[in-house]
Design a protein around this nucleic acid. Sequence first.
DNA 1: GCACCTTCTGTTCACGTAAACATTCTTGGC
DNA 2: GCCAAGAATGTTTACGTGAACAGAAGGTGC
Lengths: 355, 355
Amino acid sequence: MSSEVKGARRGAKGHPKSGPSIGDVARLAGVSSQTVSRVSTGSEPVRAETRERVLDAMRQLGYAPNLAARALRQGNFRSIGLIAHQVIRTGESKTIEAVIEAARREGYSVSLVDVETPSSSDVSEAVQHLSHQAIDGLIIIRAETATPAALALPPTLPVAVSDSRFVGQHPAVGADQAGGSRAAVQHLLDLGHPTVHHIAGPSDSGPANLRATAWRQTLSSAGREVPEAFAGDWSADAGYRIGSSIARRDDVTAVFAANDEMAAGLIHALHEAGRRVPDDVSVVGFDDIDLAAHLWPPLTTVRQEFHQIGHDLVEVIMRQLGGREQLTGYHGTVPAPLIVRQSTAAPRPRRRTRR
Amino acid sequence: MSSEVKGARRGAKGHPKSGPSIGDVARLAGVSSQTVSRVSTGSEPVRAETRERVLDAMRQLGYAPNLAARALRQGNFRSIGLIAHQVIRTGESKTIEAVIEAARREGYSVSLVDVETPSSSDVSEAVQHLSHQAIDGLIIIRAETATPAALALPPTLPVAVSDSRFVGQHPAVGADQAGGSRAAVQHLLDLGHPTVHHIAGPSDSGPANLRATAWRQTLSSAGREVPEAFAGDWSADAGYRIGSSIARRDDVTAVFAANDEMAAGLIHALHEAGRRVPDDVSVVGFDDIDLAAHLWPPLTTVRQEFHQIGHDLVEVIMRQLGGREQLTGYHGTVPAPLIVRQSTAAPRPRRRTRR
DNA sequence: GCACCTTCTGTTCACGTAAACATTCTTGGC
DNA sequence: GCCAAGAATGTTTACGTGAACAGAAGGTGC
């Protein structure tokens, strides 16, 4: 009775089961628990022989440090929260991938929350969810319409946002939306198109508006007519729907779509209506998704360096975690170069093409 | 001097800064800390007036429960680890999205790790990384070549895998790869093609092999010649490269690609060589990515219900967490229906087509 | 009026870890 | 051989929380 096995005492009283503790290892190795802790964290030197003894005991018991206890003691979780919309979109996933990679390199893991819509309420709900999770920092990809005030961010939590609209409120990293859009529109004008039409993203999207504004301004400064923009929602379906109406119009020779998916839908509709790309209509996209080069015709587009954006976001968090640096006003801009492929060409003299 | 402000004692000795604690709230509200805990967890009833007083104090201090302490006490983190490859791929991101959504519904967050390659070493490294994070369960998407033994999974950790090869080792959920592939090949045979060629995924991929095997068997049982498969790697680039060689061959009239991206690359190459789809060559993909319907021509493909797979994976974890259910042998199969679009048609009599 | 039950609140304690401080052991100079 | 100096290890303590138990307040039946 009294010769009860030591290990069996677990789960006896009011606590949930858990593995062997640092104390169990210490007992087996014949050292103090502090020495086990030193081996486990590598914080202070331990004599080689002692270390071996401790490591043996760890292996024997299958010991793994209790992370809750460690986090409690150290005051951090080595984990970053990440809020994104629509993980499926190429831009999101690439950025996420880069964030994960960069975070991991720093020894951090990433807790991902995907919000349906970029609305303020959804995002702040996600913030609530995450700040009730164990995180040391928060990255928000495409904050869009959310206002900083509405987010109710814990004031001490390091934050990084991939949206330039938050400049001055939170450190931000973003692609040069305006520069890329200007290059796209200018490219079409340089080819000789009288004007350029635009398929915009949803009106509540920051990047969509930046692209639309840049498109409008580039046309204006060139002294061209600014047609009304078509309202899309990022989806290929929207591009297809809009494309079906564009296909009936003779006056549209060049279209700048706010992303590649809509450009693909547009091209689909044009093909279907027997209009040729780029002979009848030139098309430029935005993002340079992997498939852009393999659409027919291969798509001229503006490349976003999602990978770098993701890395930069993590760096911004790390700098806040490390040096208690004040980064509120920080704003990093990543270039967005135009990639010319075969979906753009000089306009042909207007004619009804056969076939 | 002695009238020091209470709140300032934080960070005095050896502990990192942190917010107000449950005790601070209790003091301000004039109750015991246990009552604060009751309000915070809602575990036991508290008189309305008292609750209000506590909530007021919480608001006033900006109190948020310390999650490390809570996790330590309760023995769980309300967090699930998720290991994926190539978040960019449509299938991955859709599954991830569904996992996140389902987990959140259960009050869990998701820690995501992205491994470069599905190799055993990479995956087990990711497992190491994650099991040093605070997680209560682990989902592995596409375990591929990793052998269960090599993964060194903590034996008590609930696991779910989206790969049927782990049946018997870990609970698994997967699409009906074989059924979908059979339907694709049979569809082409039914249209009258003498045989069907195959662009395979990487040979170290489980699903790729399942699809290739099903293709081979369907041809054999129909008494057709089984040509050598082309070796791809899931990328559109590979499809394009292989397509360029296929375009020179007159005997290839039907191709079943192991995923939509490779199908897109293939179609690109065929277009470029002046071969028509589906008139000269019929093409079927796999996955039904969002763009599949907007390729030119719209792609016939096998749809994978990634969303359901993600949900099911979480359910498997929850069942293990809840009932201590033994699910080792569990294997859920999700149907993969064929979606017929315009990239497939009956073969035309062989001729050199103009244009 | 009193025992009894119910409902709410308070007290004590342990979770597993690592920082701070204390002690022991080694080593080398003289 | 002795002492100082440094390295290695041990002891004590607190992190913030919630479970278990204990006690107080209020209501009910007879």
